[in-house]
Design a protein around this nucleic acid. Structure first.
Length: 578
DNA sequence: TTGCAGTCAATATC
DNA sequence: GATATTGACTGCAA
């Protein structure tokens, strides 16, 4: 509805709000990106407005860049704004450069409002200052994000981690196993907290999550892209590490000062100007009492919830009630748990896809993010059946729902390799890791064909003591679910396709750019061969995460089924026959 | 109302 | 002490 309205009755740029301008910038970028390096569109009124909007922003960007003190003027994007309107391709080029070249930092407060700041926070008192800045015209991060070209989120996080580790700034997961590495970076660790608070305006936990599980660009909302744009800008900053070090020094200094003052002036210390009070604790405050204690679910509770999730990823309120009662939890806790679990499973799957993609694409210049993005692009236009003008037949789609729908649809149609990969991956590895018997098991999935089949080779031995799933057994299980899942999951499982064959083939297929035909057929073939003959090696190397991956995939299948059911209830039945 | 994305912040783990 | 995990929350959209 909004699109129709926008296309038929576009407002002039000047009358658009910040938010209202975003779609036009996106359209312009899309036009430029999708239709190739087209020249300036015909001077139609609407296009002219759009172009004008882009060039206006471009101008402001360049002016801001040109006035930046801290940025070397080496980038073409930092040249003065052109007198004449740029071509659209130039616009995009400059936008790309803006993010990829050293650029002025952006100040944004935590609530998202852009701020003007003339200097990096000189005050040592604030530990949560969002971003260091140099003086330049105000440009909101939202604008920059909206105009940003596609970024390789996985690559960005990888590079951030590299930069931090190279400079002993942070001790990362990859180094966890090495105690020596840990010792190598004593006291110098700035870490995720400082990086997050200083550069991204996020807390440590969020940074950890982002770095460990970056979503592909095309699956991020505008807000979700912000941290990646910030990271990219930070990476482009030649003084990034120094600035962070400075921040750390200042923080340390401030901490020492606070500590000193609290020691010498222990009674009167109210921490009025120091922000976080590290010496707190002796003075009980009413706020502390108001704080709700954090709920920590017991392992058996989690397992019960997982089992319930396996059966119904979207439980009804009644089911939630039952679960909550049975587990002696609050209803909201159960609801939250399901929300979080669904969300995190999706993210895990993104990562799996990306990593599988980068493994199978080793040596390729194509970034995982770019690949998945292409996949999305090709399928976003109702091409989930594999009919794509660009060539690659893909089962992927943009967004979790689209992804799942797409997969399920293609499965139901006996379609792409991606669909086979989803289910096909389960069988052989499920058998391999049967001894690891996950708590959620087929015992409660007997009425769920896909799960039952997927886990058929496994020996389920869940604790018999507590079986909250039993309550769920009485829940109405839709026939559609079973039918759909049978069709969906069994396709590749029953044909006995190698998981890696299907998975990697699908990756390969989805990742082959239509223009670079050279390695396509060959690498596909090689991939298939590799998956056929190199399976055991690959399997053993990935054995450790089989269990969780299997769980996630299976859960995802249920997720798909649920969505299909919902969709089926809205659409004509014939559309959803399997 | 429901589901999701993004995030915080408490807690667990290393 | 740094990082990872995770329950809870907010805001948005359908």
């Amino acid at each position: 509805g909004s699109v129709s309205d926008m296309l038929s009755r576009p407002k002039p740029w000047s009358k658009l709000t910040q938010k209202g301008r975003e779609p036009f910038i996106r359209m312009q970028l899309w036009l430029n990106g999708e239709l190739g390096q087209c020249v300036l569109p015909a001077q139609g009124q609407q296009q002219g407005q759009v172009l004008h909007s882009v060039t206006s922003l471009q101008d402001s960007l360049q002016q801001g860049c040109a006035s930046s003190e801290s940025t070397p003027k080496t980038s073409a994007s930092c040249s003065p704004a052109p007198e004449s309107p740029m071509s659209s391709s130039e616009s995009v080029k400059s936008l790309t450069e803006l993010v990829q070249q050293p650029c002025p930092a952006i100040e944004t407060s935590k609530d998202g409002k852009s701020q003007e700041s003339s200097e990096p926070p000189a005050s040592e008192s604030q530990s949560t200052t969002p971003l260091p800045l140099s003086g330049h015209s105000a440009l909101s991060i939202q604008e920059l994000v909206a105009m940003s070209p596609e970024l390789d989120t996985y690559g960005i996080t990888k590079r951030v981690k590299e930069v931090l580790t190279d400079n002993n700034l942070v001790w990362l997961t990859s180094l966890k196993s090495s105690r020596r590495a840990r010792k190598c970076a004593p006291n110098s660790a700035l870490g995720q907290r400082l990086f997050g608070e200083t550069i991204l305006g996020l807390t440590q936990g969020s940074v950890s999550d982002l770095l460990a599980r970056p979503k592909p660009w095309h699956k991020l909302s505008l807000k979700g892209r912000e941290p990646f744009v910030r990271m990219q800008l930070w990476l482009n900053d030649p003084n990034n590490v120094e600035k962070l070090m400075d921040m750390k020094r200042m923080e340390k200094k401030a901490y020492m000062k606070r500590r000193h003052s609290s020691v010498s002036d222990s009674q009167s210390c109210e921490s009025s100007s120091t922000g976080i009070d590290y010496s707190q604790g002796a003075s009980p405050q009413p706020q502390h009492q108001l704080k709700k204690p954090r709920v920590v679910l017991a392992p058996e509770e989690k397992e019960a919830l997982k089992r319930a999730y396996q059966q119904k990823p979207y439980p009804s309120p009644k089911t939630i009630e039952e679960l909550a009662t049975q587990l002696n939890l609050k209803t909201s806790t159960v609801i939250n748990w399901f929300h979080n679990y669904r969300s995190r499973i999706r993210r895990e799957l993104f990562i799996e896809e990306i990593q599988a993609g980068s493994q199978s694409q080793a040596g390729s210049s194509d970034s995982p993010s770019a690949r998945s993005s292409r996949a999305a692009h090709s399928s976003e236009g109702d091409s989930c059946d594999g009919v794509d003008a660009e060539g690659p037949a893909e089962g992927k789609a943009s967004g979790p729902e689209a992804d799942e729908f797409s997969n399920a649809t293609t499965k139901s149609q006996g379609g792409s390799a991606e669909s086979a990969s989803e289910a096909g991956e389960e069988a052989p590895r499920g058998a391999r890791s049967a001894e690891k018997a996950e708590p959620f098991q087929a015992e409660n999935l007997e009425d769920t064909d896909d799960e039952g089949r997927l886990r058929a080779p496994r020996q389920s031995s869940p604790p018999a003591s507590q079986r909250p799933g039993e309550a769920l057994e009485t829940l109405p299980n839709s026939a559609t679910e079973g039918d759909a899942s049978t069709s969906a999951a069994s396709t590749s499982v029953l044909t006995g396709e190698s998981s890696y064959k299907s998975k990697e083939s699908s990756e390969k297929i989805s990742s082959v750019p239509s223009t670079s035909s050279t390695p396509a057929a060959g690498s596909q073939k090689a991939n298939s061969l590799q998956s056929l003959f190199g399976f055991s090696e690959a399997a053993s190397s990935r054995n450790t995460r089989d269990s969780s991956l299997r769980k996630k995939k299976a859960a995802n299948l249920n997720n798909i089924i649920h969505r299909l059911e919902k969709a089926a209830s809205r659409e004509e039945a014939v559309e959803w026959e399997f």
